[in-house]
Design a protein around this nucleic acid. Structure first.
Length: 478
DNA sequence: TTTTGAGTTGTTCGA
DNA sequence: GTCGAACAACTCAAA
């Protein structure tokens, strides 16, 4: 019997993995394959933080497969050609995979389909990491949605996502295993310097880590999720995003586990969590139907926005040296752990785009490189939302005040203290605006503005006025 | 076809 | 100190 290949991509798990389950069900020998592809045209090559995660996740997947008597074969190169060559090399007659939705990944699937097909090898494609197939949800006029709430209602009306499938109990091994590259040779882990210490302390990549995180979330955080998710000083969010991005757990698994755990006593936490899961689908929906989302403003008028060319401002923002404590705390959390609390993402994004007038694409690129959960669809949709040029975007006058946001969502300053230790001795009432603190208070905390901690690089009130004027000009010209 | 209600996440000002 | 209105106008989705 000819073997079949399971081409793993953004679905690095064994349970609720339809491609794997279907391949196993054939009874044929199964060859699991992962291809590192940095060269496909249009591909967004993974950033540094994502590569760190990928390396750990692939190691975990390989271990899980070996427990089933199987292996994970690793290859590198343009994925369509590499896959086709691999299929011929192994004599496989079919490739099973779960779809990915980035424009370049879809194009890659088409190329792979054609290349394999010309050798009589089938490419069997299953829905990827979404609750509902992205092509099934449409307005009554047959158009894709541009507003979230109707999208959410349509998603709910279409019924719950498919029930998760268990992992296959066994996989038939091929007579001889094909050659595999060594994971260590891919250089995914940083060295000289190794900046991954903060990430390793925070995360457990892989399917087991994903399941543990989900369990912990459901057990301790779901009931208070509606309120606590906005508090960066509390462990209120699910922190499932990197696991979901790499497909170590499926959104359907999260959905059904949460519904079961809530047990019919539908508290506010459940619906809020399910809506957050649906936001991932909405971002994919937008990217599929508007493939230029990561590059160009969804609202074309914003092409005329008078962006600033501010290299110094961008660097200060990236390094967490803007002089606004909540912004700096967020940017440093990102740098150290590969993650940033969602509320703080909005604050730092608003600061970059509206206070500094730096193009949202620059912020998107930085997040792409530094986030362990960097996801093309969510990243692009969210940056455009903050910038005001996206689908269902924030109104132009919504400009976050970094001081009041800090006081509201980090009232004791615990989050700032954790990531901006040079301010840790400041009392809570001034920690979000140290320039307002009396000299004596600063001295007592060992803070000298401009020396131990930067002076604010901009006056927010002035910046706000400037942004409103710029935004008004864009819409007036339209 | 036309109409109508609604639209993730905010801030500021003045009564 | 609290509270409601203003901040624009537009576009979407559905009736």
């Amino acid at each position: 019997m000819k073997p079949v290949i399971v081409w793993f991509r953004q679905d690095l798990r064994l349970s609720d993995q339809r491609a794997l389950a279907a391949a196993a069900a054939t009874g044929a020998p199964v060859i699991p394959l992962y291809i590192l592809d940095d060269v496909s045209p249009g591909a967004w090559a993974m950033g540094g933080a994502s590569r760190w995660w990928l390396g750990k996740s692939l190691a975990a997947l390989a271990q899980s497969l070996s427990a089933l008597g199987s292996r994970l074969i690793l290859r590198r190169g343009e994925a369509a050609a590499t896959l086709c060559g691999f299929a011929r090399e192994t004599g496989a007659d079919a490739v099973y995979t779960q779809a990915a939705y980035e424009p370049w990944a879809s194009a890659l699937e088409t190329r792979a389909h054609n290349a394999l097909g010309s050798h009589g090898i089938a490419l069997k494609r299953y829905p990827g990491a979404v609750l509902k197939r992205t092509d099934t949800l449409r307005t009554q006029a047959g158009e894709p949605f541009k507003v979230y709430t109707p999208f959410w209602r349509a998603l709910l009306a279409s019924g719950p996502p498919a029930l998760p499938e268990p992992a296959p109990g066994r996989l038939v091994a091929p007579k001889a295993w094909p050659r595999s590259e060594r994971l260590a040779s891919w250089g995914l882990q940083p060295h000289k310097p190794d900046w991954s210490g903060g990430m390793a302390a925070e995360w457990q990549p892989g399917e087991d880590g994903a399941k543990a995180r989900l369990e912990q979330f459901l057990e301790t955080r779901l009931s208070a999720y509606h309120d606590d998710r906005n508090r960066p000083d509390k462990p209120g969010t699910s922190r499932l995003s990197p696991h979901l991005h790499f497909g170590e757990i499926s959104p359907a698994q999260c959905w059904h586990a949460a519904v079961i755990r809530a047990g019919g006593t539908a508290g506010t936490g459940l619906e809020t969590f399910l809506k957050e899961l649906a936001w991932r689908d909405f971002a994919v929906h937008l990217l599929v139907h508007w493939p230029t989302l990561p590059e160009a403003p969804f609202k074309p008028a914003y092409a005329r926005f008078p962006w600033a060319d501010d290299a110094a401002g961008l660097t200060a923002w990236q390094r967490g040296r803007t002089g606004f404590p909540i912004v700096d705390a967020g940017m440093r959390e990102l740098w150290q752990t590969g993650y940033m609390h969602n509320r703080v993402r909005m604050i730092v994004a608003s600061f970059l785009v509206k206070d500094l007038l730096i193009p949202w694409q620059a912020g998107q690129a930085w997040f792409w490189d530094t986030l362990v959960d960097a996801d093309l669809a969510s990243n692009a949709a969210s940056w455009q939302w903050v910038a005001g040029c996206g689908a269902d975007a924030a109104p132009y006058f919504r400009i976050f005040n970094p001081v009041s946001q800090g006081m509201k969502f980090d009232p004791d300053g615990a989050y700032v203290r954790r990531f901006v230790p040079e301010l840790s001795l400041l009392p809570a009432d001034v920690i979000h605006a140290p320039w307002l603190a009396p000299r004596l208070v600063l001295d007592a905390a060992g803070v000298t503005l401009g020396e131990t901690y930067p002076c604010a690089i901009i006056d927010h009130g002035h910046a706000r006025t400037r942004a409103l004027a710029a935004l008004k000009a864009v819409t007036a010209a339209a």
